[in-house]
């Protein structure tokens, strides 16, 4: 595992040195500032509005970060032939994939925590209370971000980045739909649609922006189970990505 940790550290350094990360982070922070500047009727509504849409902004940020950080990693490594000396000698394919994933996941988590901090500062600036569950809610979005990251890795092994973006975004949208909504896309085949929907991820379990905005009490066990689900689904997507990668010739 030492090789994986070293390689993830290498990936982390590389991503921090790229402008993509800072560009996306800036866009998310600007969007949060924009949300906070929308006037509201009263103070309580404004607080809820900022929390609700702020967390939504962070969630979209997780998608943008996953795409921006990971969609080009493998294609670029292949194109620049950086991949060959790595895979040929010190790393096995699973170590390469896990190292790249872990590095990107750490960068993404750090960036999302920064956006969470930004949201807290905005709430403080407006003299609004900071809910205790804001940080756990961001943690769930980080887990969702990792799931999206693993999806981006999966697609990156057999598609180009311009195709990876719409495919991942489509899965992101579908994963937010309830079974009833999904069946509504093709009502003529409800059984098939229900089955497909059950296999597809239920990313809506990571969204607790509404309960937080409404001040609901969320039991800690919920966080644990949602994190477990998210990590297992990410592991599944990564294993599929690895199966595709292992089957590939590296010309």
């Amino acid at each position: 595992m030492k090789a994986v940790f070293t390689f993830s550290l290498m990936t982390l350094r590389m991503l921090f040195r790229r402008r993509t990360l800072w560009g996306i982070l800036l866009v998310i922070l600007l969007a949060l500032a924009g949300i906070a500047s929308v006037p509201s009727f009263d103070v309580s509504n404004q607080g809820r509005f900022i929390l609700d849409f702020g967390l939504f902004g962070i969630e979209v940020g997780a998608l943008l970060l996953a795409l921006g950080l990971a969609a080009t990693l493998f294609p670029r490594d292949r194109e620049t032939r950086t991949l060959m000396p790595l895979i040929a000698v010190p790393l096995a394919r699973w170590q390469y994939l896990l190292g790249r994933f872990m590095g990107a996941a750490l960068v993404q988590a750090a960036a999302l925590l920064v956006t969470c901090l930004g949201l807290m500062l905005i709430l403080l600036f407006h003299r609004l209370p900071i809910p205790g569950d804001l940080l756990p809610a961001t943690l769930l979005i980080i887990i969702e971000g990792w799931f999206l990251l693993s999806t981006v890795f999966f697609f990156s092994f057999f598609t180009s980045p311009p195709l990876n973006w719409p495919l991942t975004t489509m899965l992101f949208i579908v994963s937010q739909m309830s079974v009833a909504e999904f069946v509504g896309i093709m009502p003529s085949a409800p059984g098939l649609m229900r089955t497909i929907r059950m296999i597809l991820p239920h990313a809506d379990v990571f969204h607790i922006k509404d309960p937080i905005a409404h001040g609901f009490e969320i039991e800690p066990v919920y966080f644990l189970i949602a994190i477990f689900y998210g990590l297992c689904y990410s592991a599944f997507m990564l294993s599929l990505a690895l199966a595709v990668f292992r089957g590939r010739d590296l010309k």
Binding site: R13, M14, T80, R81, T82
Partner: peptide, 8 residues
């Protein structure tokens, strides 16, 4: 034609 990540 070896190549490496050029930020290192």
């Amino acid at each position: 034609n070896p190549d490496y990540d050029d930020s290192f």
